[in-house]
């Protein structure tokens, strides 16, 4: 993980499953984009269909604060 920003600890217990594909979500590479900016992050992703999950605490926490910061740029 050295050098990678980690905003969220990805599903350590394997509690999240993709409903459509029936497989557990895995730590995977994803990207947030807002106002011409992109951020590589690691999020729970379905290894089959690529569904990227943004948990509530992440959306209301770090994501919201980064949004505010970019809006005020």
């Amino acid at each position: 993980m050295a050098g990678e920003k980690n905003y969220y600890t990805v599903d350590p217990m394997g509690k999240l499953r993709c409903f459509k594909c029936g497989v557990p979500l895995e730590k995977g590479k994803a990207k947030f984009m807002y106002l011409d900016n992109g951020f590589p992050v690691e999020l729970p992703v379905c290894p089959v269909c690529g569904f990227v999950y943004v948990p509530e605490e992440l959306a209301l926490g770090k994501v919201a604060s980064v949004e505010r910061a970019l809006e005020d740029k």
């Binding site: 995977g28 947030f32 943004v54 509530e56 949004e67």
Partner: peptide, 27 residues
């Protein structure tokens, strides 16, 4: 994002909801 339960094929109960403005996609 909506967190919900299904009481059948055509019946849902919403338990939680949240949103964000950022787009997110697989990399």
């Amino acid at each position: 994002w909506v967190k919900f339960s299904r009481e059948g094929e055509d019946s849902f109960t919403v338990h939680r909801a949240w949103s964000h403005r950022m787009r997110v996609e697989k990399r």
